[in-house]
Amino acid sequence: MDGAGPTLAFWALSAVTLVAAGGVLVSRNLLHAVLFLILSFVGIAGFFLLLSAEFLAMAQVVIYVGAIAVLVLFAVLLTPAVGRDNGETRFIAPALLLSVALAAVFIFVIHDTTWNTVDEDPRATVESLGTALLGRWVLPFEIASVLLTAALVGAIMLVRSPEEEAEDGLA
């Protein structure tokens, strides 16, 4: 992590991510906000790449950009007021208070934590990730999959019409 290249990349990525995050907040068009969110996801993926965690970076792109962002887009599309100005709200004061408090906590934690620095290259290879997920962390991993499956089945059941249920002999 030295040399001009990575440093330059770090600052560029920081700028992109922060600007995108700001864009999410200030843009009044919901769809623009989602696109900014996607840009900020991409920026995070760039950080992972910079930290030599290629697999995480790619997973970030696949999952966040390829899947989650698309789901958010669906949600936005089903919102009637996509293009309308969505800025006006009665909760400005509490929201401001909450965000200032949260920012204070974050800054405090970041400032006070003694960050470990690792000397050797921490290569998080796919093998090690897979071993960890299916070895030490197998229980949370499986619980998460069961939860997701349950959510999937629930979602399917929610949108089924009685006619579909009647005509589908497999159900």
């Binding site: 970076a57 790619m58 698309v70």
Partner: peptide, 21 residues
């Protein structure tokens, strides 16, 4: 890179989004 297949899949999931845009 060692994960080039994942890289390919990651990159090829972007056009969907762009087409949507």
């Amino acid at each position: 890179i060692p994960n080039s297949l994942v890289y390919y899949l990651a990159v090829s999931s972007v056009p969907t989004l762009v087409i949507f845009m």
